[in-house]
């Protein structure tokens, strides 16, 4: 079963000519349990794509299939039960007065009985390491902590598909590390959860099974992290950089060493030492 299948998607915010549209004939698909990172320069349409996937926006042309069902007006409510999204701004998605209430918000909407909520809240707060902050208000939490609460809120609804729309963009390096570690943990614990990440940080993109580079509303490149990052020049041409661990190998290769950036650190160091 394909978790997501996007076919020939066109979208623009205002009525515009084809070549100016945000998404232009964009297609991709992904298997259940796969994790995909979307990278691309600003304004390439990555976040728009995420909003289309959760039906906050409606495509002009093209089809979206989630879990083999087409995303349409009469399937939205059903499909939204299986898809969760974490947005960029930690403050603007914190709905409850405290951590507890925020995790409960989604449960209340799902009509989970009151008696079961406490256990679920505790379970997912533990999952993201926020169990000691349950009664804290958002004002006294860091950005990374708020994002962890947002993730707990989404996880508590058992999504089959999890979207992270630049969830680390507004965080400090420490907060970003927290979220990256949590993403890793989620992937290893929920093997059949499909995770889509939109990011500007190449280190984050490295964590996923597959990378899709989006440029001017089209799929520009697609492949495993090693494949994608071996095209350093093409990426540079659209303003993207390599992650640090690829970058130093690339620089050494340019300097004439027999090193490829797909090598592991150890292999590269081995060659350097001889």
């Amino acid at each position: 079963m394909k978790a997501i299948d996007v076919q020939h998607l066109w979208f623009s915010y205002h009525q515009e000519e084809e070549e100016k549209m945000i998404l232009q004939d964009l297609s991709f698909s992904c298997e259940q349990g796969e994790s995909i990172a979307f990278i691309g320069p600003n304004g390439s349409g990555k976040s728009t794509l995420m909003k289309l996937l959760v039906a906050l926006l409606e495509a002009d042309k093209g089809k979206i299939f989630l879990l083999d069902k087409e995303l349409k007006e009469d399937t939205v409510d059903f499909l939204r039960q299986h898809i969760g999204i974490v947005f960029q701004n930690p403050d603007n998605q914190f709905i409850g007065a405290t951590v507890r209430d925020d995790i409960a918000f989604g449960l209340e909407n799902r009509c989970i009985p009151h008696e079961e909520m406490e256990d679920i809240i505790l379970k997912y707060a533990k999952e993201v390491g926020m169990e000691t902050f349950l009664d804290k208000e958002p004002a006294s939490l860091s950005g990374g902590q708020k994002q962890r609460v947002a993730i707990a809120g989404v996880l508590s609804m058992h999504p089959k598909i999890l979207l992270m729309d630049e969830a680390t963009a507004m965080l400090d390096p420490k907060g970003r590390k927290e979220i990256m570690a949590l993403t890793k943990k989620m992937r290893s614990e929920n093997k059949d959860m499909t995770i889509l990440t939109v990011t500007h940080h190449m280190e984050e993109a490295l964590l996923s099974d597959r990378i899709i580079v989006i440029y001017q509303g089209k799929v520009y490149m697609e492949g495993t992290p090693d494949e994608v990052f071996s095209h350093a020049e093409e990426l540079k041409a659209i303003g993207l950089d390599l992650p640090f661990e690829k970058k130093w190998k690339e620089e050494l290769k340019k300097a004439g060493f027999p090193i490829e950036n797909t090598m592991t650190d150890e292999e590269a160091i081995e060659i350097l030492c001889h």
Binding site: V54, L56, R80, Q81, I83, G84, I85, I95, R100, D101, A104, F105, G106, L107, E108, N109, R110, C111, I112, P113, H114, M117, I121, G153, V154, M157
Partner: peptide, 15 residues
């Protein structure tokens, strides 16, 4: 709120 399933007119339970 919308993607987390909030429907102002829908039925909700209370925490």
């Amino acid at each position: 709120m919308e993607v987390r399933g909030y429907d102002p007119n829908g039925k909700r339970t209370r925490y």
